[in-house]
């Protein structure tokens, strides 16, 4: 669709503004894997309720927006074994690398962090390779 890039830019700006607000108001880096990961492995200490509040907003607002507009569709693969494997890889990988698309990508690159840039190069590279292998060579997804 021709308006996809406009929606991408608009949604991206909202993501960036959310990260900006979380930094300038709460003084925190908005990294999704860090926020959820530190809650589930109980490494979040004094900030646990703040992180939980972030996650509640992250579930409720897009949930309501998708419901209201009828736009929500993730098109997740029906191959649940592969989906579970992917989830494990994403969970382990983001915690070992200490960041994901929001933390390393959005928050890291925007402050010209070398770690953020290197992480982003590797996860996008691995993502591209993963699509080549699983989609084009093996035809699994």
């Amino acid at each position: 669709m021709p308006q996809d890039w406009i929606l991408g830019l608009l949604g991206g700006a909202m993501i960036g503004l959310a990260a900006a607000a979380y930094l300038l108001i709460n003084g925190r880096v908005m990294g999704a894997s860090g926020i959820i990961g530190s809650l589930v492995d109980r490494s979040a200490k004094e900030n646990a309720t703040e992180r939980a509040a972030f996650l509640v907003g992250l579930v409720l607002f897009p949930g309501a927006a998708a419901f209201a507009t009828g736009t929500g569709d993730t098109h997740v693969s029906g191959n649940l074994v592969l989906v579970a494997l992917a989830g494990l890889l994403v969970g382990v990988g983001t915690r070992i690398a200490n960041g994901c698309t929001s933390g390393h990508g959005v928050c890291g690159i925007s402050r010209l962090s070398l770690r953020g840039i290197v992480a982003t190069v590797f996860y996008i590279g691995a993502g591209g390779l993963s699509v080549v292998v699983f989609r084009h060579l093996l035809g699994w997804v």
Partner: peptide
């Protein structure tokens, strides 16, 4: 850790198309 973790994450991201936030 940064490199290996990012490679594992990217592999999973490409496989399912979801990262933690979404």
């Amino acid at each position: 850790n940064l490199v290996l973790g990012s490679v594992l994450f990217g592999a999973g991201w490409g496989l399912a198309g979801l990262c933690p936030g979404p």
